[in-house]
Design a protein around this nucleic acid. Structure first.
Lengths: 369, 369
DNA sequence: TGATCGATTGAATCCAATT
DNA sequence: CAATTGGATTCAATCGATC
């Protein structure tokens, strides 16, 4: 492709605009091989049943929008394969795609990507620092979402800015798990009535990392499920061109206004992408899981008390069960107790505070990022 | 099922042994619905990559390429669906399965699980604290693996020891991302020549968390890809029965020796924190019958509501009569209410939750057997 | 002005025993 | 079987009001 060709075809593209309508039809209006990167946040097909309430009886505002309802897995698969095929057509040969999802849909999406000829490069885990808990205690807290990064084809020369991501990660190679907060506070777009404008707005920090790592200034970034336009906003900040597709007029309106207010290379917005580092909390249970202490092993205190370790990381002493802190406090008749310094294990005839084991884990974590 | 039946069928099971051979054939020798939990670490099908690899310099016929690709994934899918179907047959109706994989195969596995009728409960990220770096700097450090937890069917009453996992995590609800080190050091099994015995040995800590959280002492745990037997070793420690299937004689030998050297934790250590639901139900009427509360006495809530106790153990408030729960819910305009924590009685000028009285009765019941 | 407390909220496949 | 009833269940962050 000559330079002249590229300019001509670029001029024909609806750059930095939001196309109205269904994503497959809108993509069909684009020429072959015109896009460098696609970021897609398709419906998750959550299949929610009744309502859910928090322990305080307040109701959880569920994602029950029409756009997230599919009749069956088969229907969802057809939808997925159709838009993935069209997306692949508009991708340049060395282009790549990111798709985000949860366990409800991501396995359908991942298999479809492979079947359609994409080549998986990594999957990335967005570990939410502040997820919604599991209110009924029936499952694990759903604390992450999954992103799949794939090139158009095997052997494609996809863009990967290794050094930039390493720099973003304080000089350490970027890993496949990203700890980022959910979109809330001032970043969360709200309608005039104060209600959130979109039920599933993605954080700027997430898109920032994707676009810094996998696109270049001047690249064309397509988002076929544009919503309130986080992809467009970040693309503009970073000096990339973007094309959005969104069928809901309300979302389009919010996105237009939002992006109009974005300035290129807004320093304040870039700051969002740096996660805070705090002293990691180490649950006592990890010492048991890792075999540093055995269930049934006896811990002792310097005051002569003792208790036994259980498989779930609780202790059982004389008439008391609970955490290392609770049992220590109970045995001493104290209101509180720091179990880490109170309890000791016996090694080679010597008593050693269990805090030593916690320090071991912490230094491992520090070494390995 | 009578006790005799259960003993007979249990006696017929090859408990705590490793079956030699292909996992589908070996599972076929087991009866229907005989297993409580399955942990599976299937092959990642690395030959799939080789099949798909094409020279980059010359154009490969597109149709030929697509057909070849389809055939390769189809082979893996057939393998996956076959063993998942057989696994589902041997699972008890309320049984569950865990499968671990990487991005190469987990999307095939997850879609197959859904298609075969399993019901996804969570996906879990094993976040490796010490992964192998990406030496060439061409992708992100692949720092995690994915586990899928699914029940045999939608609506199954799967085992989930919520309190035990919460205890393992020092009192905070367990999340879907687990930070654990890879299997190395003394835990890593080695042959006589010092070479690692198995390329992908899973850490004890990972299986510990799965089995503590999703099985009970005495449960039967099946691992159809047993390898060097981490599942069996942890099952034995935790007082669960296990069945392994492995076709490689060398791995079987290593696993046998390893498990023989494992000690079961003592019984007290295996008990985990019990859920409140498991405690005996106490009708509110008993508090009245026993004279702990008198008919006509007034109960109050922290929100300022009040109601009077009646002789039959119901309450009467402003325009409402019924159980402690019903009256509480009605007065608050809430869909439900836990009357035990909502209502308080007044003693010496202090308000005390009526749940204290229930606890008195429960501890009496425990004392007297 | 800073600290503290309470209310609110987020992609959620979220109950179990008894009648 | 369905219908009813008992009663168990939450973490991090933001925002605003109060001290």
């Amino acid at each position: 492709m000559t330079k002249m060709d590229r300019m001509t075809s670029a001029a024909a593209l609806p750059l930095n605009t939001i196309l109205a309508g269904d994503c497959v039809e809108a993509m069909a209006s684009l020429p072959d091989a015109c896009v460098d990167l696609i970021f897609a946040d398709p419906p998750y097909n959550l299949q929610l049943r009744g309502d859910l309430r928090r322990p305080d009886n307040s109701r959880v505002d569920a994602v029950d929008d029409d756009w997230d309802r599919f009749a069956s897995f088969e229907t969802y698969d057809t939808f997925t394969r159709t838009w993935l095929r069209e997306a692949r057509r508009v991708l340049k040969p060395d282009g790549a795609i990111w798709v985000i999802g949860s366990y409800h849909n991501i396995y359908r999406v991942g298999a479809a990507l492979q079947d359609e000829g994409y080549w998986l490069l990594n999957d990335v885990i967005w570990r939410k620092s502040n997820p919604m808990p599991n209110f009924r205690g029936k499952r694990l807290t759903n604390a992450h979402e999954t992103l799949i990064w794939a090139s158009r084809s095997e052997g494609a020369k996809y863009t990967f800015n290794y050094e930039a991501l390493k720099a973003l990660n304080e000089g350490i190679q970027m890993r496949s798990d990203w700890v980022l907060p959910i979109c809330s506070g001032g970043e969360r777009l709200k309608n005039a009535d104060g209600v959130k404008a979109h039920p599933t707005q993605k954080p700027v920090s997430l898109l920032h990392r994707v676009l810094v790592g996998c696109s270049k200034p001047g690249d064309v970034v397509l988002d076929p499920f544009f919503g309130t336009g986080t992809t467009g906003a970040v693309a503009k900040m970073l000096g990339r061109d973007w094309i959005g597709i969104e069928r809901d007029a309300g979302y389009r309106e919010v996105a237009e206004a939002r992006i109009a207010g974005v300035r290129k290379f807004d320093k304040a917005a870039l700051e969002v992408s740096r996660p805070k580092r705090a002293e990691p909390r180490v649950p006592f249970g990890q010492l048991v899981e890792r075999g540093m202490l055995r269930p049934g092993e006896t811990l002792v205190s310097s005051t002569g008390k003792s208790a036994k370790v259980r498989a779930d990381g609780t202790l059982v002493g004389l008439d008391v069960k609970g955490s290392i802190h609770q049992v220590g406090a109970a045995l001493e008749g104290a209101p509180s107790c720091n179990g880490w310094t109170y309890w000791h294990f016996v090694k080679d005839g010597q008593t050693v505070p269990i805090d030593v084991l916690r320090q071991q884990i912490r230094s491992e974590m520090a070494e390995h990022g």
